[in-house]
């Protein structure tokens, strides 16, 4: 079986990258091939990277509150590119927004209390 590939990205202007780096390392240690885009990605650059790298899942790290403006654009971009790649969001997402993100096609939303186990389970389930 080919190695499963996950793209993790930091979307928007926020630079707090502790979470995204820890998650990237957790997934790498769990056997995934992890592609980290670096900071300040736009929905367009994330979609392009997901297409180029032919990934099995996309993980988006959000803290700043811009998730409602940016995350749906990633999902739409992937679908427009003909991909059904699952999108998982991690970070600080108010309860009110979790439901709308899910309805907009986001596979899972992980809060600041998510454990390593929960993160890996969510990725497994999404793929």
């Amino acid at each position: 079986m080919a190695e499963r590939r996950v793209l993790v990205a930091k979307l928007g202007l926020d630079g707090h990258d502790r979470g995204v780096k820890v998650v990237a390392r957790l997934l790498r240690d769990a056997g995934y091939e992890v592609i980290y885009t670096g900071l300040r990605q736009t929905p367009e650059t994330v979609v392009a990277a997901a297409v180029d790298e032919d990934v099995d899942a996309v993980g988006l790290s959000m803290l700043s509150g811009a998730h409602m403006a940016l995350v749906p654009r990633v999902v739409e971009g992937l679908r427009a590119a003909g991909l059904d790649t699952p999108v998982i969001v991690g970070g600080i997402i108010p309860e009110q927004d979790v439901q709308s993100l899910r309805e907009g096609g986001v596979e899972a939303v992980l809060g600041p209390g998510a454990s390593a186990e929960e993160i890996i389970e969510a990725v497994e389930a999404a793929i």
């Binding site: 926020d14 700043s64 509150g65 811009a66 998730h67 940016l70």
Partner: peptide, 21 residues
């Protein structure tokens, strides 16, 4: 964040970030 990153509120990259953090 737009202010911290030197972007105006009407900059396309500021979308969703204005007045949040």
């Amino acid at each position: 964040l737009p202010t911290l990153m030197g972007r105006d509120s009407d900059d396309p990259l500021s979308a969703g970030e204005v007045g949040r953090c």
